[in-house]
Design a protein around this nucleic acid. Sequence first.
DNA 1: CGCCAGGACGCCC
DNA 2: GGGCGTCATGGC
Length: 269
Amino acid sequence: MDYSIKGNDILVHENDFDLDDTLDCGQAFRWKKIDYDYDCTYEGYFINDYLRISQTKKGEFIFHDTDENTFISKWLDYFDFNTDYSELKRQFSEDETLSKACKFASGIRLLKQDSWECLVSFIISQNNNIPRIKGIIDRLCDHYGGEFPAPQQLAKETPDSLAYLRSGFRAKYIADAANRTAEGTTDLAAIAKMPIDEARTELKKILGVGPKVAECVLLFGMYRTEAFPIDVWIKRVLAEYYPDGFPSFAARDAGIAQQYLFHYIRNLK
DNA sequence: CGCCAGGACGCCC
DNA sequence: GGGCGTCATGGC
């Protein structure tokens, strides 16, 4: 990756990065495609830091109204620019199915999101669809002046007071996650550093957090790339292409491989 | 009307 | 430990 400064913007050259693949693949829910100009432009947030970003063509990006310091300290890490995705895909491509999946949506990258926002987002995601997940999170942030609420703010709420979210049975799960995190019963920063099985156990103590949500929080919110969320789509991939198990050579970054497979199987035929 | 959506819980055996 | 109904809400 290399970048340059142009006026108030940062221009970035980076292959293996596509905005549509990365921001609209169901790993993050607060990015919105806006159609001003360029090939595509999104606006969204990392926690509560706003960004407008454009892709002008393959491999070229504009981080609008961003100074160098902000780019280096925030977005470089968030978009995982320090990871060599070409090399990762080269490794994955030893496997035939993974090879096809990597070619299908080759611009997917793992976003290094905030663990708390990720926890709430994937609690909401259960038995739900992406447009509605986005709607619920929109209403949540609107309620707090456009910012994602901190655990301490949400801990004051009850399932009843959260009715405006129209999140259904998930409201009591959100309330429990907020209470535990606010009072320290759940320590997300500590969990992020635990051995992964211990981290899984700790996350699943939260009401409404089962194997799938715990795995998503580990992968998307704590950058534990060995975490491997198994949803209905990945279940189909495993049954159809990996009856003898997922290849062990990909285990260390199985979560990233999972991203390619998820996108591939969902858009197949 | 029924079915499904990046599941988890409670209860049953 | 596996199997199954239920849980809100909204789009199709």
